[in-house]
Write a protein that binds this DNA or RNA. Sequence first.
DNA 1: CTGTGACTGGAAGTCCGTG
DNA 2: CCACGGACTTCCAGTCACA
Lengths: 69, 69
Amino acid sequence: MRMWLKEIRLQKNLTQEQTAFKSNISRSYYTHIESGVKKPTVETAKDIAFALEFKWTNFFESQCSLKEQ
Amino acid sequence: MRMWLKEIRLQKNLTQEQTAFKSNISRSYYTHIESGVKKPTVETAKDIAFALEFKWTNFFESQCSLKEQ
DNA sequence: CTGTGACTGGAAGTCCGTG
DNA sequence: CCACGGACTTCCAGTCACA
């Protein structure tokens, strides 16, 4: 579970669907990423990070940590 | 061509084979990466970056630039 | 609105022959 | 000895459909 991701999303009052849309990926894939099942590529990570306004390296620095920024 | 990669390697006086070995990947795969044919995963990028002592994000910040650091 | 299993195209990574 | 690159296999990012 990538709690930090979920938390960032909720802080922005976005649904998974809205976030997925802003990131140009499918809703279900975003769900997989948030749950930790799938790991995004760098490109996708950048898109999501841009959509939620955090730095994309978060995905690869703190794999599953609760760190929020 | 990822010239910046080659240059870093040469600066350290390492062959492709030695670098590949230090990065735990095959020699030919390292060749592919240096030539720009293949794109390493984050994990592999980290390994190579560690072997050649530069920051792994270089791979994803400056795709094919001549930027050296 | 979210979770998840099944599926697939394409890319990661290797092997091996060549220059 | 060192590097290039085609051919091949394996695996997983990303989607769809259903719950």
